[in-house]
Design a protein around this nucleic acid. Structure first.
Lengths: 169, 169
DNA sequence: AATGAAATCGACCAGCA
DNA sequence: TGCTGGTCGATTTCATT
């Protein structure tokens, strides 16, 4: 319904998206100056990109450290291989408070879970809750010493080959 | 300078943050109605939270699928254990276009890298670029079949214990 | 820390290339 | 379809409590 890998953009769209992806708190004036486009045109394009689902939402980026969430762990979760379970286990894992992201992978280990909490006791609680999920077999966790979040910014992070595939010539 | 794990919030702050974290595209009217607070007060609190660095930025959430970025991989990277290198290797890995996130962990494997691209050839390019980084020893990649992003939303995702530590009684 | 009034900015409409 | 210009309503700012 919203998927569109073949949705084409022009250079202006890409530039606009790059701007608002890193900071939506700029005024239309600023954008129209940077892009050499009228305010109305910028507004028009933004609305189109929202309607198309390219811009999913506008959100406040909160600093986890401001909440004391400075402990991150990666947990590898293997499950008992009974068909159909995997789908629900994934959402169950994601439903655990403190779990940030769940990757379902091919390989020996079935899930990789990223969780972020304040201290060890909370981390223990998270892991215990994961183990308690029906179908979860074994878990193995590693603490994250440091993380480099290069890019939640999709546009800035596009490989060159990807970028050229998107812009109409 | 901006870190503050002991910065305290009240219930109103938490509620406000929960709202704007999931959607900043709401009007002040809506917020002030939901929170039973005057528009100006909402605005005042938002500014305070921005200045305090709790709200790091306001950004447009783009859908990677709209750019054809539907291939995700987790790559475990082990490095030659020479002191000091690790820091720069992390940022080098994060600098590779297509790499979304880098976790530096304790354990046999030193880094876990999340990358997102359009197709296999781009994935190959990403991995080759990682291998070429000075100090990188070995890599092992797994494709992600599915991902459940439960919470980039920090507030919604707080463990109960974490929440009670933040709100002043 | 919260309020209300004044200046500023963004959203929408009708028309045009 | 993509853009322009102008109007109205909303938001930001500031002086005041």
């Amino acid at each position: 319904m919203s998927n569109s890998s073949d949705g084409r953009f022009d250079e202006m769209d890409i530039e606009l998206l790059r701007c608002v992806e890193s900071d939506f708190d700029v005024s239309l004036d600023t954008l129209s100056q940077q892009l050499d486009l009228s305010k109305s045109a910028v507004h028009y394009r933004l609305n189109k990109l929202k309607d198309a689902g390219v811009i999913r939402s506008v959100t406040a980026d909160l600093d986890p450290l401001a909440f004391g969430l400075d402990m991150v762990a990666l947990t590898e979760v293997s499950v008992t291989h009974e068909q159909g379970y995997s789908d629900t286990i994934g959402t169950d894992l994601a439903g655990v408070k403190g779990v940030e992201q769940v990757y379902y992978t091919m390989g020996d280990v079935d899930f990789v879970v990223v969780s972020r909490v304040q201290d060890r006791s909370q981390m223990n609680a998270v892991i215990e809750e994961m183990v308690a999920i029906d179908g979860v077999n074994e878990t193995s966790s590693r603490f994250v010493m440091d993380e480099v979040t290069s890019g939640t910014d999709v546009v800035d992070n596009l490989p060159d080959a990807a970028r050229s595939k998107l812009v109409e010539e």
